[in-house]
Amino acid sequence: MTAVSALLRDVSVRVRGLPEPVIDVPDLAIATGEHLAVTGPSGAGKTTLLNILTGLERPVSGAVLWDGIDIARLSEAKRDTWRAKQVGIIMQDFNLFPGLSALDNVLLPRQLRVPRLGNDARERARHLLEQVGLNRHDQRVETMSRGEMQRVAVARALQAQPAIIVADEPTASLDDTSAKRITDLLIGLSTSSAATLIVVTHDQTLARAMHRVVSLQRGRIVGSRTAPT
């Protein structure tokens, strides 16, 4: 844990009608290359914390510094650009686009951003699909098993070579075998690309594989434990 990658300072998020803030984090530092798990009961604010960390939502107050840049103060368009470059997101229910092949799904975010896809982007997408163990790149995603779908989502998250990989309950809707495989892939791929990995999870197996586990309760960090290494 050397360089500090992310620093949350005095971050709070409020929702109208609720007296207590949904998120109230006075100080949270995440080191570059760290594997961090966020756990806690439902409604603890895990997803909101992820939203704040990835710039999908802006805190009412506080600073969200990633390598010195406060993304809470970037304009909407700049945050989009930052996120597209730096963050790869994996979601619980995959959010793949049916009708498109595995390869097209991996390429879609980039296609929506650049005027023309280069050959290198295609090469990278194919390489990533091989890495997650998928050989039929033209298979339509709706014909795949859930485990395979989440592997496509992992490949998609890594397409832009992000420095930060964020996963929201990546194993929650998978069977044990598939969950194990996704866990291994997430850890293996983020380690090999030296990316920071942040997962929100209930899955103890996944949480235990992280460097550090942070527990959230009613928007506050109530516990933090470092894995014995």
Partner: peptide, 19 residues
């Protein structure tokens, strides 16, 4: 949801407008 996901994945707002 779909549009929000596309943006979370890195699509710019102009692309969603265009889409």
């Amino acid at each position: 949801r779909q549009l929000a996901v596309l943006r979370a994945l890195g699509a710019p707002r102009a692309a969603l407008f265009g889409l």
